[in-house]
Design a protein around this nucleic acid. Structure first.
Lengths: 214, 214
DNA sequence: GCTACTATCTATAAGCT
DNA sequence: TAGCTTATAGATAGTAG
């Protein structure tokens, strides 16, 4: 629709391409406008000019509303997977995962914080008793060490304490003695295996400490 | 461009509107196609027919890529806030919140599961000792009850146990005695207040049991 | 909802300012 | 770079199937 018939292929002359873009973009927007009024429809038109500038059109609705209507369409009506929606769904799944994790951890904590009613068998009770006794031993040993430190205020060396239940490392330990640290690491893996075994077989009422997180 | 000039206003005749939509939609898509080729640009066109069916066009890029290019534009270039992006950001924040919560709970659990090194003062140690002792008392009382139940296999009544640290209710209790349940609830609020007070003032080394969650 | 026809209206390519 | 002009290609309203 001009003086000559135009081949539909990329216009190589940059200036010409820009001019044609400008003219046809306006024509397209005009047609989109007419369609939206005549037929009373939702429409969204996005164009990026050869130089990257955005032009857009939407009818009575905001362009976001039209895009939202599009992304909320079931996949078979849209004809393609929706990356934005699936990203949101992935995040929602992650939120749910964490929500469950928090619930699980709070349930575990309840045992220690006084609610013994979730124990339903003597066997379970004995296990919890054992775990609590060990933890108590650790805390009492720790208290002794701290009391000694309090008394000997001039002593600046770092004290170490190992619990009966599991040898807990300190960062200080690792920092000052790489060699001992290696010993600890190999030992740690064995301990870790034991705990994982107990845990997987339901012998630990509470999931064993995740050593890797320390 | 037809036998008569058409007023640009909604076509009231439904059939006519549908027909016009169909024709003009094709025309619009053709023009969009030509523009995308001639000027080598990104373009996205979304239309919902009067009956709600989606038609769309995009050039060489997938329509999602064009929409993504749009939503990733800085707000001042887009001219409006981006609801999709902010929804994703909100979810990301929630994930982070939960991640922190999990970390916090795991840290608390560590105390009980043997790692006493996070205790740094005698005062703290005494508090943890006290909490563990109370929990141990609860578990031991619970064990006794369960042992009795094991012995009296013919006894079908539900046994109740209350810990020293906090009176924990059981679902059985609430189910069989609404009146006592009310007593418990009023008592529970007081307990809750005490624990919240202790917790807020740093007197509890571990966040008190969330009673509302029971 | 789609195709075909065709008179008529519209968009626009090229050229000019 | 942006508008204007104009000849012409293209789109489409009305109609029928």
């Amino acid at each position: 629709m001009g003086r000559v018939k135009l081949q539909i292929k990329k216009i190589e002359n940059t200036t010409n391409r820009q001019v044609t873009y400008s003219k046809r973009r306006n024509g397209l927007i005009k047609k989109a406008y007419e369609l939206s009024i005549l037929c009373d429809i939702d429409i969204a038109l996005l164009m990026f000019s050869p130089s990257g500038r955005l032009s857009m059109f939407s009818g009575n609705k905001r362009i976001e509303d039209v895009l939202e209507r599009y992304v909320n369409l079931p996949e078979h009506e849209r004809g393609r997977p929706n990356t934005v929606v699936s990203q949101i769904e992935d995040l929602q799944l992650e939120v749910n995962k964490f929500r469950n994790k928090v619930e699980e951890l709070e349930k575990k904590l309840r045992i220690f914080e006084g609610d013994s009613l979730i124990i339903t068998s003597v066997h379970q009770a004995e296990y919890h008793e054992h775990v609590l006794e060990e933890a108590l031993n650790c805390v009492r040993s720790r208290k002794e060490v701290l009391e000694q430190q309090q008394d000997l205020t001039s002593n600046s060396s770092t004290e170490q304490i190992f619990c009966h239940m599991q040898n807990v490392h300190s960062n200080g330990f690792l920092a000052t003695s790489p060699h001992h640290a290696a010993d600890w690491l190999s030992q740690r893996d064995t301990q870790s295996d034991i705990f994982n075994f107990l845990d997987l077989n339901g012998l630990l009422p509470l999931r064993s400490l995740k050593l890797d997180d320390i």
